[in-house]
Write a protein that binds this DNA or RNA. Structure first.
Lengths: 103, 103
DNA sequence: CGTGTTGTTCGAAGATGGTCGAACTATTTG
DNA sequence: CAAATAGTTCGACCATCTTCGAACAACACG
């Protein structure tokens, strides 16, 4: 069973966080998780217009940016937002995504 | 005398803003302007470790992201932050840069 | 008018990033 | 065990981004 690496939020730079959140596909992933309200979701539950390989790459990028916590459950990979930790490190950043989602 | 284009903040996407602010060199420019407290600064007043050509490109990128307002004064190009407008469009985003500047 | 200052623009080189298909691993199910 | 499911990893391709030097433009100052 695969184990994913999850950096400490203190190691995540603002540049890194912004770069991760700048991509539309990754924004979509984070927005979906924001609406999921804390629930962990499998990769194939997200409606993404990219291949499996590309999606997997984006999930990894978001993990490295401290946004996602992932673990495998059977053949699935469940991911949830590290909401409180990320909010403590970069206050207000995720709220901007929430706002843009309504627009 | 050259005139620069300055987009309406409503036309600036969150992706665009984050992409602009993700670059270390551009972060340096914005941070310097934040410390300048509203004062307009010439390009050569910023201590950047890149060539003139590259710096000029970064200033243009920041203008397109709605962060800078620039105008020429003699041979100089004076730039200032569009602080209130940008803050109204993306609340809290510039504060993150300010915080990271102290760290 | 010539010289120096300040940026801009152009073209090219090199790095980075998003994308995919194919092959692979691990797990569940028949 | 065989087949289906869910992701990951690899290698390659292409677009975009960063960077620079060189050439250029506009202005200030003798």
């Amino acid at each position: 069973m695969k184990r994913f690496a999850h950096p400490d939020l203190a190691e995540v730079s603002l540049s890194g966080a912004m770069q991760a959140l700048a991509d539309p596909c990754r924004q979509q992933i984070v927005r979906t998780l924001l609406e999921a309200d804390g629930r962990a979701m499998a990769c194939n539950e997200f409606e993404l217009s990219v291949s499996k390989a590309t999606a997997s790459h984006h999930f990894e990028t978001l993990r490295q940016a401290g946004l996602l916590r992932s673990s495998t459950q059977g053949t699935k990979c469940l991911s949830s937002l590290r909401l409180d930790e990320f909010e403590a490190r970069f206050p207000g950043l995720l709220q901007l995504l929430r706002d843009e989602a309504r627009a």
